[in-house]
């Protein structure tokens, strides 16, 4: 065993999950159909990582999380979380992880929010001093003070989500899964949740896996991104790698000393001219440096700015491209005996 594989807390290898649907098609006649929610999924996550798990609706994100917490068994393949087999050792694992299921709350809806936290202290046997310290910190970071004594039933979606996040993190779990933690939240709530997550990840070393449809979450939080579609892992790497891999274009905005006709530059294309300002598009794979020097050599350059391709556009392209890009050799799984899953 290498050091790196020792440090991984989540190990998923060639995991498949098939749902069998039985549909009544007539009197006494039933039709059986298989839904492949997850196919041949392999990845591993190291302690302290924060991973964004992306994919369109029905891609298999929630199914993956349910398998990781042990409330769904894989149909095939092998799963290890913190050295445990989740579905067989569900209760033991439960002490060490936290989960937030986007729409489902673990909070007591009829009781004040605080009561749910107090109960968590008892269940996880959090020492009183530690509990008070954690809770005070969470109240401040997630801005809970104004509604902590309100019954959960009366909380807004965003307030409830912040409560759920607190509940998941209070026992200081090693790993936390968040299934769409920012769904339906306003800008302020989203910002609070994001900064809380990034701080906890940074300061407590908590491993976090989160699914989201919000690309800002990913941009602000996740160094590593996994993209799943139709149950298959289509990409696993950094956001920059994703940008490069999927291609797309970057834009260079240049301000010239005086208005000029559209420039002609090798490897770039002018898409807009507005007075002395021009916009050029170039391939996201290319470096901006030679382009900039080419422009500077031939035109009176005053100012410039490079625009990255929007991550939304990239992921949308990833979902819609029939030919998914090859999975890069995973940085976190150096074991060559477990090659990344084949490409569709």
């Amino acid at each position: 065993m290498t050091l790196s594989s020792d440090a991984s807390v989540i190990d998923v290898s060639e995991v498949t999950r098939t749902f069998v649907l039985r549909r009544r098609t007539g009197w006494m006649r039933r039709e059986r159909s298989d839904v492949h929610a997850v196919r041949d999924l392999s990845f591993s996550v190291r302690a302290g990582e924060m991973v964004g798990y992306l994919g369109p609706n029905g891609a298999g994100k929630s199914t993956t999380i349910k398998m990781l917490v042990g409330i769904l068994t894989p149909s095939a393949g092998r799963l290890r979380v913190a050295g445990l087999d989740p579905s067989r050792q569900r209760l033991r694992l439960a002490r060490r992880i936290g989960v937030v299921f986007g729409q489902r709350s673990a909070l007591w809806s009829d009781l004040p929010l605080r009561d749910s936290f107090d109960l968590i202290q008892r269940i996880y046997r959090i020492p009183p001093a530690r509990y008070r310290q954690n809770l005070d910190e969470f109240i401040q970071l997630l801005d809970l003070a104004s509604f902590i004594d309100t019954p959960v039933r009366q909380l807004s979606l965003g307030q409830r989500m912040r409560g759920s996040v607190t509940a998941a993190f209070l026992p200081e779990p090693e790993i936390v899964y968040l299934d769409e933690p920012t769904i339906g939240l306003d800008v302020v709530s989203k910002a609070a949740v994001r900064s809380f997550l990034s701080r906890t990840n940074r300061e407590s070393g908590t491993t976090i896996l989160l699914t989201t449809h919000d690309m800002t979450d990913v941009e602000q939080l996740c160094r590593r991104v996994m993209v799943i579609d139709h149950g298959r892992l289509g990409f696993d790497g950094t956001l920059d790698e994703l940008r490069t891999r999927i291609g797309g274009v970057r834009t260079l905005r240049v301000d010239l000393a005086e208005p000029q006709p559209a420039m002609t530059i090798e490897g770039a294309r002018v898409v807009r001219v507005d007075g002395a300002r021009q916009w050029l598009e170039f391939s996201a794979q290319d470096s901006a440096a030679p382009l900039v020097s080419a422009v500077a050599a031939r035109y009176p350059l005053v100012d410039l700015a490079v625009g990255e391709p929007a991550i939304e556009d990239i992921v949308a392209r990833l979902y819609t491209t029939d030919r998914l890009p090859a999975v890069p050799p995973s940085r976190t799984d150096p074991d060559p005996t477990h090659p990344p899953s084949p490409v569709r």
């Binding site: 302690a47 990840n201 941009e219 602000q220 160094r223 590593r224 940085r331």
Partner: peptide, 16 residues
């Protein structure tokens, strides 16, 4: 932010 972020492997090692 993203441009200056270290690779996941380094980060994980640092976190560990």
């Amino acid at each position: 932010n993203l441009a200056t972020l270290p690779a996941p492997a380094e980060l994980a090692a640092a976190a560990a």
